[in-house]
């Protein structure tokens, strides 16, 4: 779809430029005659092709229903979209907006939510025990 969109955009732009140039040339040469039909047709067709190309090459629409949107996040998780920050970290797609409540892992869960109450000592202990046990 990406190639089709780019192709349509390119063709549409070429025809649009040509039509605009032709009409300019025509009005410069014959100031008081109406525009020939072929230039008008070219103009309309190029605009149509260009609009189609823009629609085709636009990114996929996001679900507008809450349940579908939430379901999509739950099914697919976060994944990269080919953009990186300067530090080399990939910018991921939208994730669960309620993860900060830390309720996903249930009662007594060991999640990363509720950053304000992050218990550094227990996390440190967990890591130290893992490292002592061989780190596997």
């Amino acid at each position: 779809m990406a190639i089709l969109g780019t192709a349509l955009n390119a063709v549409g732009l070429i025809f649009l430029t040509h039509a605009v140039y032709s009409s300019h040339e025509h009005t410069a040469a014959f100031a008081h005659t109406p525009l020939p039909l072929d230039i008008t047709i070219e103009l309309l067709v190029s605009i149509f092709v260009l609009s189609a190309g823009i629609v085709v090459s636009s990114p996929q629409l996001k679900p507008i229903q809450w349940a579908k949107w939430g379901g999509k996040i739950a099914r697919e998780g976060q994944h990269g979209e080919g953009k990186w920050t300067r530090e080399g970290e990939e910018i991921l797609s939208e994730g669960d907006g309620f993860a900060f409540l830390g309720l996903d892992t249930g009662i007594g869960g060991n999640g990363e939510g509720r950053r304000g109450f992050w218990d550094v000592r227990s996390k440190r202990k967990e890591y130290a025990e893992w490292a002592k046990a061989g780190g596997k």
Binding site: Q78, T85, E87, E89, E90, I91, L92, G95, D96, A99, D104, T105, N110, G111, E112, G113, K123, E126, Y127, W130, A131, G135
Partner: peptide
């Protein structure tokens, strides 16, 4: 789990923490 510093995962096991 992907070890991403910009958006860390909601669960970080020790391996990921090390990464």
């Amino acid at each position: 789990v992907q070890a991403n510093l910009l958006t860390p995962p909601s669960r970080i096991p020790p391996q990921t923490a090390l990464q």
